[in-house]
Amino acid sequence: MDSKNIDIAVGGFLCFLSIAIYLYAERYAGAGVNQYGPNFFPQILAVMLFIASVVCIVQALRGHALKDLETIDKPGLIRAAVMLLIAIAYILLMQVVGFFIATVVFLYAQMTYLKQKSLLVRVITSVLVAMAVYALFHSFLKIPLPEGVF
């Protein structure tokens, strides 16, 4: 997508969003003690956002949009998406097997996926970093980390 289409798409979405917010905020009207109730700010911001989005679309149509957009690297984007999935799996795993084990697995999985070649580096980093974070958060700062179901 070139910058023109992106700006039109984003502007259109924000126009829609600002209308939705304005209408939804209407239900808070009258809950305050004066005319500047809880609906005042969201609604005035929604109006401003609507205007700004329309200007954004108009500028894009008139060709004022910035031309030089960075291109997203396709394989890179897929890589980032997979890493996000690994992170989500980690968050779920943590609640089953507990923080420490999940963290070791998470770090190892990430580095393996990113093609860190040395097995030794992967293993040692995973274990040491997990231990350090666990010691700092759990033992020193006493932040409750998920213990898992065991």
């Binding site: 109730g37 911001l45 956002l49």
Partner: peptide, 26 residues
């Protein structure tokens, strides 16, 4: 323009949640 749009979105995000002035959850 895009900076202003970003700021407006940010300001709208801050209106989420309990409003201590009126006691209304937004």
């Amino acid at each position: 323009l895009k900076g202003v749009i970003a700021a407006l979105v940010g300001l709208l995000i801050t209106t989420i949640g309990f409003d201590p002035l009126s006691g209304v959850p937004r």
